[in-house]
């Protein structure tokens, strides 16, 4: 027997909340980045769950594109982190505060 949609949604919400907490709590940019991946995956779960619910493939195609995007984002994001590390010798997110007054 398949679990109902609500379970999946709750699971995804929990995953998403963990991801948010990670972004907000951690100071290590790489871990912040991983938390963002967590959030993306939580969203993917909801997409696929709804796709199953509606028996419609479009949701899964969307997840496919999210993954593509995630790959691109990770490539660019990690490149930024490397460049930043070269300049500041730090990957602490609190050192990246140039955008202030």
């Amino acid at each position: 027997m398949t679990p109902p949609l609500e379970y999946y949604l709750l699971f995804a919400a929990a995953l998403f909340a963990i991801g948010v907490a990670g972004v907000l709590l951690r100071r290590n940019v790489i871990i912040v980045f991983m938390s963002i991946e967590l959030m993306l995956n939580a969203v993917n779960v909801t997409f696929i769950a709804f796709s199953r619910q509606m028996n419609n493939i479009d949701g899964q195609i969307f997840v496919f594109f999210v993954m593509t995007l995630a790959a691109a984002e990770v490539a660019v994001g990690l490149a930024i982190i490397v460049a930043m590390f070269r300049n500041k010798e730090s990957i602490n997110i609190e050192d990246m505060n140039l955008l202030k007054w």
Partner: peptide, 14 residues
């Protein structure tokens, strides 16, 4: 408010 700290911005966004 404009602390420049990313997590602060993310918090308000959330």
């Amino acid at each position: 408010v404009q602390s420049g700290l990313v997590s602060g911005y993310a918090l308000s966004l959330f």
